Amino acid sequence: MTSGDVAREAGVSRATVSYVLNDTPHQKIAEATRRRVWDAAARLGYAPSAAARALRTGRSDIVLGVLPDWPIQHVLGRLIQLLTNAFAEHELTFLVHSSAQPARPLREVWRALTPAAVLALNEFPEAEADAMRTAGIEVVMTMHGSARGDVRFPPVSGERGDVRSPLVSEEPIGATQARHLVDSHRRIGYAYPDLPRLDVLAQPRLDGVRRVCAERGLPEPDVRTVPLELNGAVAAVKSWLAADPPVTGICAFNDDIAMAVLMALQSLGLRAPHDLAVIGVDDIPSSALLRPSLTTVVRDTETLARSLARRVVDALDQKELPADPIEDPLRVQVRDSA
């Protein structure tokens, strides 16, 4: 099916079909004619060619999202959904590739797709970014990590050299958790995940807790690895309670880790917040169903997704980009655990 078929069905020229379906600006076409073209295209099952659109605009409409080998659970799944919607508002298609083995190598994927931009959740080798640039992919952005080797045109305002700030900073999350606890607790613990591949998220969150403790004159946070397994979580809780002075408030990497801490307390015949206050991150649906219900840091994922899409679109349009990370509104959902 071609645009000529649509033109014959609607009784208009092929140029009119092109103007209507591509929403070409500055064309005075009657609303009735536009409706006739859209109705004809729908009846015939016609959709404009992505290849032709790429030739016309000089770039594809694909933004390739590169996922590291992270668990794809509620929070990451929601971010992917909202990024898909946010890019669609800019007439871009967000396609996701997971790096979890045995997936196809990333290089094979972007060479096959020739995307307009690449948005990676975690940093990848500098050589990969250089290869993308050589192939004509001008916008390569990294949400987390040091972002060495990111390619962004034009250059980001205020940046020097090859090391660029990540698009999203996790440090404020840990700082928000700690601020919620420091007024009532003189010793803070941090529940660290037992998956090393999550260090790029966990380490800056821990840095935020450390910063607030230092600002308030508190000791360094007592960091314990907490697996999603009861015996390991119990061991961590016992260590916190046996510390000198004992830890009385826990900042957990996320809600899953916080739940493990709460289950460990329960198995020891203890309860939060009386014996150990606990605050998580993400506000996953089950956090409100626990007893005690979980206090947690809530991220405005929809605003974050829209801001990420806007940053990519601005880079594609050759606009100067700010050096600072994207503003990430946070709030504490206060419940019973802290």
Rank of each mutant, 00 (worst) to 15 (best):
I62Q: 09
I62P: 06
I62M: 10
L64F: 05
L64N: 08
L64H: 06
P68Q: 00
P68L: 01
D69K: 03
D69M: 06
D69I: 01
D69C: 07
W70R: 02
P71D: 12
Q73M: 13
Q73W: 12
Q73Y: 13
V75W: 14
V75T: 13
V75M: 13
L76N: 06
L76Q: 09
G77S: 14
G77C: 06
G77A: 14
G77Q: 04
R78C: 08
L79H: 04
L79N: 04
L79F: 08
I80R: 11
I80H: 07
I80P: 02
Q81T: 13
L82N: 02
L82W: 03
L83W: 04
T84A: 15
N85C: 11
A86L: 12
A86W: 09
A86K: 11
A86Y: 09
F87T: 12
F87D: 11
A88C: 08
A88R: 09
A88Q: 09
E89K: 14
E89P: 08
E89Y: 09
H90S: 14
H90C: 07
H90I: 00
E91K: 13
E91W: 09
E91A: 14
L92Y: 14
L92W: 11
L92M: 15
T93S: 13
T93H: 14
F94R: 09
F94T: 10
L95D: 07
L95Q: 10
V96I: 10
V96A: 15
V96Q: 06
H97D: 08
S98L: 01
S98A: 06
S98C: 01
S99I: 00
S99K: 01
A100T: 00
A100Y: 02
Q101T: 02
P102Q: 10
P102A: 08
P102N: 10
P102H: 09
P102E: 09
A103E: 05
A103H: 03
A103D: 05
R104M: 14
P105A: 05
L106M: 04
R107E: 15
R107P: 12
R107T: 12
E108R: 01
V109F: 03
V109L: 05
W110G: 12
W110D: 11
W110Y: 15
R111F: 01
R111E: 14
R111Q: 15
A112D: 13
A112P: 01
A112W: 00
A112C: 07
L113H: 10
L113D: 07
L113A: 12
L113P: 08
L113Q: 13
T114Q: 15
T114P: 09
T114M: 12
P115K: 01
P115H: 02
A116C: 11
A116N: 11
A117T: 03
A117K: 03
A117L: 03
V118L: 10
L119R: 00
A120E: 08
A120T: 05
L121C: 05
N122H: 09
N122R: 13
N122G: 10
N122W: 05
E123M: 08
E123G: 15
E123Q: 13
E123C: 05
F124R: 13
F124G: 15
F124H: 14
F124P: 11
P125T: 00
E126F: 02
E126L: 08
E126P: 00
E126K: 02
A127V: 08
A129R: 05
D130M: 06
D130I: 00
A131P: 07
A131Y: 00
M132C: 08
M132E: 08
M132Y: 05
M132G: 07
R133F: 11
R133W: 08
R133P: 04
R133C: 07
